[in-house]
Design a protein around this nucleic acid. Structure first.
Length: 777
DNA sequence: ATAGGGTTAG
């Protein structure tokens, strides 16, 4: 009877309905106590992906023995249900069932997938104690250690293995490749051949990855060539790694060519091609390929497919698509996978669905550094940097160790505070923990200090960090100087960089030119612009032309700017015309301004900024009916001007002020203080410059409007709420007007305080009635 | 009664 049922199961193992019928007979006959039958069923159901049935059979068996438990564990692992696999393994131990090397092997695989180092190390110790030393476990241990980042320990294990077959060699070689130790990988490959072990297809796959590691398309192509005349030709694994190599090195056409010529494809190859498309920006092609994949119902998709699709939705900021995939994940039980839930959290964050992201994050049972980092970045980008830092503390309490990406993200989050205090504590953390300063870390620090108003700290970080200085690092310092109105120091830094033999990039010139711009260094900027092509062989692109047009037109050289645009070797984009339009606004050139605005509106009709600048130009020329006409157009097209506001942080709360808004609870005091200040600065010789009030009202009204600007309200409130002598920091979303700049300068003298105003463009730094940037406008 | 190497997250 049992033999007959077993034979039937074997024969119909891929037919769900027949299997269920046989299953029903087993129940009726009460044969679950016969473990070979239960074992077969568990195996079949998990191969079919119906894990709840497999588990049902398992639970109905009164005293499951080791083979049955092993089948169940391997079923879980093969279906990527790693947590459940480990739970079962723990159950075996607590019931004192015999644990063999097979159980250990699968449990270890689960630990590798979950990055569960503690359980994994326990299992390794356990299996050494029991004397399990076969090459199966050996290669799994190597893979596990590599995944945790302990390549050297893995090598130790490798060297002490009593038997080493080709799989062990492969595990070790690919381990070196994954750890970025490419030379070691090469050495080991040579040693393997010396030992008389012939490379297998998987060895070739690792070699292909090695070429990717060396970033060498040429090398990759020659390895590709060498796969034709071996027995590895057409191997799925080799060809899949070729697809990966080509798409990561940017040669998507070759990647597709390989994919297309594959005699056999599996899910991994489909996933590789889909994610290759996504990484190269071909999102539509990726989704088309996915549709082709699921069209054929026997080829279902797996977690790898879902990761790529989540990534694609994140790139497209496609919240609805993401929710559909989330539903799929839920049904397939994939929510338990760290990788998938992390990708999901990331997706929700990129779509600004903070609450959804937090809900997934809170529900996760296992979270690793990447999960925590993704969550912190998301919070910071949504303006909740304080919570991001709290999360950092919580992460450390849970014993998760920060990595370089975490630190960079954290430093980046601190730039959102506008004050360097929190950023300094992260800096201190790096110093305390003796973490290596990578140039990426240092760049983030420089950027943070510059954006938090401490340009001198940024300078000092660069000077005293023993780190290889690259272009990006210099760029951030140059940009920092520019932001603070120190055009001269930006230029000096640029020349120092050239002296140190670093090749500038286009972005370097953007930073230097912007710095010249903020300080009115027209001659120096022009020299640099023209030296780009002659001295450094860099052709200026859109961005640079925009910078240079900005520099010329802000200096009033509108004719030159116009000529430059006409001589451009390619069609100018909107940023170039925007720069010109802005110059026309400052220098009251109505004709050119109207023409620039016309070109801009052809390119982007829904940009409110263009309408605002155009109406400002008309207002400066006192053409009030035209002003009304432009404003009417805006209303008609449903466009809104971005309202200007200023922020000031007092203690833990941020106070927001809008122009002319008197709804703040402390309004009476603010108004009174502003009146006193006005008298005092006027005594120092300040006279209102009403040219920036672009409204058709009389002079006293213009002055009244100026004194209602949001930055003045914020400054007055800050003066009232902070101790005498302390410095004041204001952040404004738009640009500060010339009169506010001047009045703040005088205020800094009257109240004897340092005042730092950060606007959309740069920092205004006032102390003792002086400004650090020679008042260039 | 049975296994290991190639892909996918910040």
């Amino acid at each position: 009877m049992i033999q007959r049922l077993l034979a039937l199961l074997k024969e119909f193992s891929d037919n769900v309905i027949r299997v269920k019928t046989i299953h029903a007979r087993i129940i009726v006959e009460g044969l679950y106590t016969q473990q070979p039958l239960a074992h077969r069923l568990v195996r079949i159901y998990s191969d079919l992906g119906i894990l709840q049935y497999a588990r049902h059979v398992f639970d109905k068996t009164s005293h499951p023995e080791t083979p049955l438990c092993n089948a169940m564990i391997s079923g879980y692992v093969r279906n990527e249900r790693f947590t459940e696999a480990l739970d079962l393994f723990k159950l075996m131990r607590s019931r004192c069932l015999e644990i063999d090397s097979y159980s250990c092997n699968f449990a270890l695989k689960a630990c590798t997938a979950l990055s569960d180092s503690q359980t994994g190390m326990d299992i390794i110790k356990f299996s050494i104690n029991r004397g399990f030393r076969n090459e199966f476990l050996g290669s799994s241990i190597i893979t596990f250690l590599v995944k945790l980042g302990n390549v050297n320990e893995a090598r130790e294990v490798f060297d002490h293995l009593p038997e080493r077959d080709i799989v062990c060699w492969n595990a070790m070689i690919s381990g070196y490749v994954r750890a970025g130790k490419f030379n070691e990988a090469c050495d080991l490959f040579i040693k393997m051949q010396r030992c008389g072990v012939k490379p297998s297809p998987v060895t070739m796959a690792s070699l292909v990855q090695l070429c990717e590691g060396f970033q060498s398309l040429r090398l990759g192509k020659s390895v590709h060539g060498s796969t034709f005349n071996r027995q590895v030709d057409g191997d799925v694994r080799v060809m899949t790694s070729l697809v990966n190599m080509y798409s990561r090195l940017g040669d998507i056409a070759s990647a597709f060519q390989v994919f297309n010529s594959m005699p056999v494809r599996n899910l991994v190859s489909w996933n590789a091609m889909i994610s290759g498309y996504i990484q190269n920006g071909f999102i539509r092609e990726a989704f088309a390929l996915f549709q082709e994949l699921v069209k054929d119902s026997c080829r279902c998709f797996d977690s790898g497919t879902i990761v790529s699709l989540l990534h694609a939705c994140a790139l497209r900021v496609d919240l609805e698509g993401g929710k559909v995939i989330h539903g799929c994940m839920y049904r397939m039980g994939y929510e338990l996978s760290i990788i998938l839930s992390t990708a999901l959290v990331d997706l929700y964050l990129k779509c600004n669905a903070l609450e959804l992201a937090l809900r997934v994050f809170d529900r996760m049972q296992d979270r690793n550094v990447i999960t925590w980092t993704a969550m912190m970045v998301g919070l910071a980008q949504n303006g909740r940097a304080g919570e991001a830092l709290k999360l950092f503390r919580q992460m450390q309490e849970e014993g998760v160790v920060a990595n370089p990406v975490t630190l960079v993200s954290l430093i980046h989050a601190c730039t959102h505070f506008g004050t360097p205090r929190k950023g300094m504590s992260v800096h201190a953390h790096i110093l305390r923990r003796n973490i290596d300063f990578s140039s990426v870390n240092v760049t983030a620090l420089i950027d943070m200090y510059a954006k938090c108003g401490k340009i001198d700290y940024a300078d000092r970080v660069l000077r005293f960090c023993p780190v290889q200085k690259d272009v990006i690092l210099w760029n951030s310092l140059i940009a920092g100087f520019g932001m603070h109105g120190f055009g001269g120091r930006a230029l000096a830094a640029y020349h120092k960089m050239i002296d140190e033999g670093i090749k500038p990039e286009e972005s370097t010139f953007v930073s230097v030119l912007t710095a010249c711009n903020h300080s009115g260094l027209v001659k120096e900027g022009a020299e640099l612009f023209y030296s780009m092509e002659t001295d450094h062989n860099i052709r200026p692109g859109q961005k640079l032309y925009a910078c240079f047009v900005d520099l010329l037109s802000r200096a009033g050289r509108l004719g030159e700017a116009k000529d430059l645009i006409q001589q451009m070797p390619f069609e100018p984009d909107s940023s170039v015309f925007e720069a010109l339009l802005n110059g026309c606004q400052v220098h009251k050139n109505v004709d050119l301004g109207v023409r620039a605005a016309g070109r801009l509106l052809q390119l982007d009709i829904a940009n409110p900024g263009i309408y605002v600048m155009l109406s400002n130009i008309y207002a400066r020329a006192r053409k009030w009916d035209q002003v009304e006409y432009v404003r009417g157009l805006m209303r008609q097209r449903g466009l809104m001007k971005t309202p200007g506001f200023s922020l000031v942080e007092i203690g833990e709360t941020v106070h927001t002020f809008f122009a002319g808004n008197n709804s703040h609870p402390n309004w009476p005091e603010i108004e009174e203080l502003l009146d006193t200040l006005r008298l005092e600065v006027e005594a120092l010789g300040y006279a209102a410059d009403t040219s920036c009030v672009l409204r058709n009202v009389d002079e006293p009204m213009k002055v009244k409007l100026l004194w209602g600007h949001s930055e003045r309200l914020a400054i007055a409130f800050a003066l009232l709420s902070t101790p005498a002598g302390s410095s004041i920091r204001i952040t404004k979303n738009l640009r500060v007007c010339i009169d506010c700049h001047n009045v703040t300068k005088h205020i800094s003298q009257v109240v004897k305080r340092e005042i730092v105003v950060r606007d959309a463009n740069r920092f205004h730094h006032f102390v003792n009635g002086r400004c650090s940037c020679n008042d260039y406008w």
